[in-house]
């Protein structure tokens, strides 16, 4: 079974057509890097998968269940259930500034009664260790660097044990020297039999971890497949010029 199927996805903001006809499938364990120029629809595509944007038309199927069928969405309760298989990490971290790091991690699982409080706290320590920030457990987000905040955001998403992780430009708001620590964490996660879609401008990183590259431009997927074929000696002029510019 595929983890995600997207068919004929279309989306406009007013008169601006952001997604024109998006089709792709994601297999279990795929690490997909979505690249392409700004405004090509990468982020909107990703946000549609987890119901942060409503598509106008098309199918979105998550682990065999329709989140959206021909533009008609599942009921709110079902949509929530379907999306609970996915975790998401944002460009601007979106940590809860009024909670310390521990509370940031445990609040959602506690509210959803995922497990006993002791188990959730245990998992919290484990996840913070995983991203190398256990010593920050009682800090407030404002005392962390951007890279640390993003690692906490990743740990927070992992607390809910998702099958699929979505990253929306996770390093775009970071200083270049903080980027690597976040990329290392994402690299670790991608080895854990996790399915990952990452929207990124880090082509080198995409090439290193992804087994598939999705190149988007102007609301379409121009190319989707093997990183070597897409990134090295691509015949398509649009892709070639983009890669030459960013590499």
């Amino acid at each position: 079974m595929d983890m995600i199927n997207v068919k004929n996805l279309k989306k406009s903001f007013g008169s601006l057509k952001v997604l024109k006809d998006i089709n792709f499938d994601v297999k279990k364990g795929d690490i997909i890097a979505a690249i392409g120029p700004s405004g090509s629809g990468k982020s909107t595509m990703l946000r549609s998968l987890i119901n942060l944007e409503k598509a106008d038309y098309g199918d979105i199927i998550i682990e065999g269940k329709y989140l959206c069928k021909k533009g008609i969405y599942a009921k709110e309760k079902d949509a929530k259930q379907i999306c609970s298989k996915m975790g998401m990490v944002f460009q601007h971290f979106n940590l809860f500034p009024h909670m310390n790091i521990r509370k940031n991690l445990i609040t959602a699982p506690l509210l959803q009664k995922k497990d006993s409080k002791a188990k959730i706290n245990e998992l919290c320590s484990e996840m913070l260790n995983k991203v190398g920030l256990y010593d920050k457990i009682n800090e407030m987000p404002s005392n962390l660097s951007g890279g640390q905040k993003q690692r906490v955001a990743i740990a927070r998403a992992l607390m809910l044990n998702p099958d699929i992780m979505l990253f929306d430009e996770p390093t775009s708001a970071l200083d270049p020297e903080l980027t690597q620590e976040v990329l290392n964490v994402i690299k670790d996660i991608s080895k854990d039999n996790m399915t990952v879609i990452i929207v990124t401008h880090e082509i080198g990183f995409a090439k290193e971890i992804a087994n598939k590259i999705m190149f988007m431009d102007n609301g379409y997927i121009i190319d989707f497949g093997n990183p070597h074929e897409i990134l090295d000696n691509n015949k398509n002029e649009r892709i070639k010029s983009f890669i030459e510019k960013v590499m």
């Binding site: 942060l52 996915m86 809860f96 009024h98």
Partner: peptide, 24 residues
């Protein structure tokens, strides 16, 4: 982004309001 983070973490509207939004 606070609302979006709460949503992808599966918080209900009410939980988002009283745990995330009101304190801030």
């Amino acid at each position: 982004g606070q609302y979006e983070a709460a949503k992808v973490l599966g918080l209900s509207k009410w939980q988002t309001t009283y745990k995330i939004i009101l304190p801030q």
